[in-house]
Amino acid sequence: MKVSVGTIARLVGAILLAAFLVRPEAFAPLFAPLTSNGAPPIYRQGNLLALAWSHFQIVVFATLASTLVAVSLGVLVTRRSGAEFLPLSRAVVNVGQTFPPVAVLALTVPLVGFGDGPTFIALFAYGLLPIFENTLVGIQQVPAAVTEAARGCGMTPAQRLFRVELPLALPQIMTGTRLAVVVAIGTATIGSTVAAKGLGEVIIAGLLSDNTAFIVQGGLVVALMAALIYDAMLAAERSIILRLGLPANERE
């Protein structure tokens, strides 16, 4: 019963999101009460669908990049030859997390200029910590008996990594990626302050023109997108965990 309610809510959310992005004008009456002095209730300075798409793209590419780097780093420092780098990598990604997003954005502007660049860098940097930490946990919690058996079967180090350790760490790595994606979707809106293409544009336009309707619709689209992606990724993770009978890792 409870499951089906959740599924219906998600379905309705997805349909509403799609409908709003494709035909925003249809929702104008809903947002009209939030405007004053005859301001437009729906953002028209740019195509909402295109903005949502580039918002989504930048999040996906940045998270892919941080997954690639964080997982490689996690693999490296769990090898015997990379163990020397473990304490420092841990400290660096932790300290990196204390950098506020606005600061990262603002400080990368002189390096790469205005546009998508600073946002990409900020999202990339923020994704590193959760994915790196989860990769570490995932690899370290592979039971010793299993890696031992893999060695005893005559697997080479590369075969052990790709056939045993990484597949077993996968659910944990996915947890990290999921947390990173949700944070990235929110942070990407701040990117619009340095001219990144994304849904932040709508919100900022609302702030500048004192139009609450813009703020609310921008916020809602981003929130809905984050919630739907979070749920989808959680479901994927659970299905893998369930199949493997691995201990569930709840880290919300």
């Binding site: 929110g186 849904l199 919100i203 921008g218 981003v222 929130a223």
Partner: peptide, 21 residues
């Protein structure tokens, strides 16, 4: 927890803006 989770998904600048009203 679900309610608070939803609040977290609202981007910061939007939440700041929405509360102005």
């Amino acid at each position: 927890l679900q309610g608070l989770n939803i609040v977290q998904t609202i981007p910061s600048i939007a939440l700041f803006g929405m509360l102005m009203v």
